[in-house]
Write a protein that binds this DNA or RNA. Sequence first.
DNA 1: CAGAATCCGACACGATACTG
DNA 2: CAGTATCGTGTCGGATTCTG
Lengths: 128, 128
Amino acid sequence: MAHPIPPVDDTAPALCGQGRELVRDVLERIGDKWSVVIICQLGHTTKRFNELRRLSEPITQRMLSATLQGLERDGLVTRTLRDTKPLRVDYALTPRGLSLLAVAQNLARWAVDNAAGIQDSRTAFDAR
Amino acid sequence: MAHPIPPVDDTAPALCGQGRELVRDVLERIGDKWSVVIICQLGHTTKRFNELRRLSEPITQRMLSATLQGLERDGLVTRTLRDTKPLRVDYALTPRGLSLLAVAQNLARWAVDNAAGIQDSRTAFDAR
DNA sequence: CAGAATCCGACACGATACTG
DNA sequence: CAGTATCGTGTCGGATTCTG
């Protein structure tokens, strides 16, 4: 395992009691098909709609729009309308969005570290 | 913000290039309705089917069964069949499952820390 | 350029009933 | 006790078309 992952906190009530629904809420937010992709593509630099569209291929206009609205609704991205000659809209992460990006990067590390192992387990399991 | 969250790594290619699909895979694994709940309920102690069922209410038999099979397929939990008088099956997290639990707890902390703020942003956004 | 509106198929999930 | 089988439904998301 290439990267250190914090040891499991044995007394982690956050995941079980009241926190269970909270965690579910978060997973419903970032568990959809595109939210994490958008968050990662935004990163620290503000980007425009079609710019995000190209970077996040093969996302559709509809889903990009919907995803951005959802993220804006939750205070994770800001949408600023520049009133220039051709219409122009800038999207950027809020501080809260940036903190979520950090969490997502943890997830990404785990994903990269375990992707191969999971794939092996999967094919082994399916072989029966 | 009560808990420290590691600062954003600016050079995080894992999330963008090849890693993007990997992260999507992981989110498809834990993004369903019950996987994280089960993983958290298992924690460090092995548990039986109906035990998990009660702890994870209001999960249905069908979804518990399906979720456990998915987790087993990915090498996140082990299923051991004890051949006692009334049938008995024990489930436990594998090392890989435990490492995922740690990641999930990060997520949980973020969820707890930001739940209120997100709720505020949401109602503010919906007020228009 | 940045979207909204509509249509539609796939699949996730719940409810219920049955089995070894 | 520990599941499987079947059915019905809501919703997510893709394809396509239209607007300011």
